[in-house]
Computed example of a mutant assay.
Amino acid sequence: MAGLFISFEGIDGSGKSTQAKQLARALEQAGHEVVLTREPGGSQGAEEIRSLVLEGDPDRWSAETELLLFTAARRDHLERLIHPALAADKIVICDRFADSTRIYQGTRSGDLRNMVDQLHDLVIGREPDLTFLIDMDPDTGLSRAKGRGGTEERFEDFGADLQHKMRAGFLELAQQFSDRIRVIDGTRDIDTVAADVLRIAREAVGVAKSDA
């Protein structure tokens, strides 16, 4: 499949959404066709599932039920937006993808990581070409996330302990998938972080074009 698939990951409040938008804008200004999307969401069906999993009480769903809901949303997202965009040789930038499910659902309640990976292999079968992990102190990130307001705070409402656990999980994941996950220090100012992200992304775009 042509195109380039880039994802952004990190704990809540890490600044990954801001950096995804910054990168999309910079690549568009450089003349690339870019599709900026998010998970859960990105397609009509997936957006409907988004409200189910991100709103309401923390105990609304078990981790197992969340896994099924997120996977269903991701499959619809792939079919209706990501795969067609990549086939059209576009750059897809996604705010979260399967790595978030590996961490949030895979470790939140016991050890569901094997189930996450098995379901991913059966139903999704696709990894990003490049992933930026925006690393941030969990307490700072949680304070930022709670300060945004809004209704999508279900995971933030689990508290700081979950955020610390998630950060550790993401950093372990970066070691496991070191060929595609690049850890970026998110504690610096937005423009400095964006410059690092853009430099790495340009290298990936160059490789993708040379392989096409």
Rank of each mutant, 00 (worst) to 15 (best):
D211A: 13
S210P: 02
L27R: 00
D57E: 15
S210M: 11
E153R: 14
T187W: 02
R148K: 12
D95K: 06
L68D: 00
A24K: 00
G141W: 01
E64N: 10
L86G: 07
H77P: 03
E79T: 09
G206M: 09
F5W: 09
H120S: 13
G3D: 05
R167A: 07
A46N: 07
R144T: 07
L119I: 15
T65I: 13
V207P: 08
L173H: 00
R199D: 13
R25P: 06
G141I: 04
A2Y: 07
T107Y: 12
R154T: 02
P58F: 01
K146I: 11
L119P: 04
A208D: 09
E172K: 15
E79D: 13
T151V: 14
L67W: 01
T140R: 14
L142K: 04
Q118H: 11
G110Q: 12
Y104R: 05
G169F: 07
T18L: 12
L54M: 14
A72D: 03
D99F: 14
D89N: 14
E55D: 11
A2V: 01
L54D: 04
G169P: 05
E172G: 15
I200E: 11
E28W: 01
H164R: 15
A87L: 12
V35A: 01
R144S: 04
A168K: 15
G110T: 12
E79F: 04
I124A: 05
G186T: 08
K165R: 15
D161P: 01
S51Y: 11
E9I: 03
P128K: 01
F132T: 02
P58G: 08
D157F: 06
F155C: 06
G149M: 12
A20C: 05
L81N: 11
I91Q: 03
K209F: 01
M115C: 03
G186S: 12
V197C: 11
E203I: 12
L27M: 10
D99C: 06
A212M: 08
V193R: 00
G147S: 10
S143W: 08
T192N: 10
V92E: 08
E9P: 00
A195H: 13
P40V: 08
V34P: 04
D111A: 13
I103T: 04
G149I: 07
G125Q: 11
L78K: 01
G150Y: 02
T65V: 14
L27W: 02
Q19I: 02
L198C: 09
G13V: 01
R60H: 11
S178Y: 08
T131M: 02
Q29A: 15
T192W: 07
Q176N: 08
A168F: 04
L171G: 09
G110L: 11
G42N: 06
